[in-house]
Amino acid sequence: MKIAVSAQGVSLKDPVDPRFGRCRHFVVYDSDTGSLTAVANPSGETSGGAGIQTAQLLVNQAVGAVLVGNVGPNAFKVLNAAGIKVYGGIKGNVENSLELFKEKKLNLMSDPNVSSHAGMRG
């Protein structure tokens, strides 16, 4: 299964990004092969619908789970409909977050935890 982590950079040592729709990158770990890739998220500067577009990006990447800080209602609806599991409460860097996931210390979210536009700058 592919596990995506919302991140500020492209490597394991980069800090996570608490925002979902407007995070810079996803670091994607494939638990079957152990491979690591990074996917740029172009939605950071979009005027609206960043969460929907970002969720669509993960659907297209055939991701099975995503580790996030915050996720809003529209993004959650898409992820949920696509069967992508959403785990909340990540901190530190990508590596720490994947460790917490493997140790089953992250919460499986059943609802969005922020309102629309929570990740807008300014």
């Binding site: 979009t46 609206g48 619908g49 960043a50 929907i52 577009q53 969720a55 669509q56 659907v59 898409v78 409909a81 696509a82």
Partner: peptide, 9 residues
């Protein structure tokens, strides 16, 4: 342009 649609399988 407004991200009003999401296409899932």
């Amino acid at each position: 342009a407004f991200h009003a649609l999401a296409v899932l399988p």
